[in-house]
Simulated scan of single mutants.
Amino acid sequence: MASWLPETLFEIVGQGPAPSKDYYQLLVTRSQVIFRWWKISLRSEYRSTKPGETKETHEDFLENSHLQVQIALIFGARILDYVFNLCEGKFDFLEWLSDDLLLSILSYLDLEDIARLSQTSRRFAKLCTSDKLWEQIVQSACDHITPDMRALAQDMGWRQMFFTNKLQLQRRLRKRIQRQGSQRSSEL
């Protein structure tokens, strides 16, 4: 399965913690962890400092606690954990799927499963509350969606529309149609 993966598995750049102005890049390929740095300083002793680079195989990185500490300080513990998992061959293949494909898959889940999945990551929280997903769910639950229903859903949101009971939706649709009728008559 690893052969399906691109050459670059992960890349992040960032600035060191204050008061540092140094820049860092962390690149994880299929076979190496590459850590690069650029010293940014006004002090004369650092002006001629060249950028640096450390390359480690995945196995060597797992043993290099000094490099791990640097990565945790600069990019945080979550990034270090993610890089650790990549080096151990634990790939999150869901991360490589497009949002449209994931939304299509999510539309087949039960509501309880969508609620649970939304709590697993920021990406899934965003997808599980997106109007695109709830539009698909409403369309699969309804036989026919009228243009008035579609306009109401765009006003109130597809998720809200799904969870609103039928009587309330009918009232809102009637009010919307009445407003549109009164607007048209006032324009004439």
Rank of each mutant, 00 (worst) to 15 (best):
V13R: 15
L109N: 09
F124C: 10
D92S: 06
L101E: 01
E95V: 09
Q68W: 02
L111W: 02
R36N: 11
G181Q: 06
R43A: 14
Q25V: 10
I137Q: 01
L117Q: 02
I114Y: 04
Q154Y: 03
L101T: 11
R150K: 14
T120E: 03
E53V: 04
L109F: 15
Q136R: 15
V33I: 13
R47G: 03
S48F: 08
L97C: 08
R174Y: 12
I137V: 15
L188P: 00
R172N: 08
R78Y: 02
D143A: 10
Y24E: 01
S65L: 05
L167K: 15
L106V: 03
D148E: 15
R159K: 15
G52Y: 08
F61Q: 02
S98V: 11
Y82K: 15
E56I: 08
L94Q: 05
S182Q: 11
D81I: 04
A141Q: 14
F84D: 13
R123L: 11
L111S: 09
L169E: 06
I137M: 02
R123A: 05
R174K: 13
Q15F: 08
Y23I: 04
H58N: 00
S3R: 07
L9T: 00
Q178R: 12
L106S: 01
R123H: 01
R174Q: 12
S104D: 05
Q178T: 13
Q136P: 04
R159I: 01
I40L: 01
R78M: 02
L111E: 09
L117E: 01
P17F: 02
S104G: 10
H66M: 09
A2Q: 06
H144E: 04
A125T: 08
L152I: 09
R43H: 11
L127H: 01
V33A: 14
A18H: 08
Y108T: 13
M156F: 09
I40Y: 03
E45S: 13
E7K: 04
F35R: 01
C87V: 13
P51A: 12
L5Q: 07
R176Q: 15
Q178A: 13
K39C: 04
L173D: 07
K21L: 13
G181F: 02
N165S: 08
R179S: 03
E95I: 05
L169H: 09
R36S: 05
I40F: 01
Q178F: 09
I114R: 07
L9P: 01
M156V: 14
E59C: 03
S186V: 10
T129W: 03
L109V: 13
I177P: 00
K126V: 08
Q25P: 00
E135H: 05
F75S: 06
H66I: 14
Q70V: 10
Q170I: 10
Q154E: 05
F91M: 11
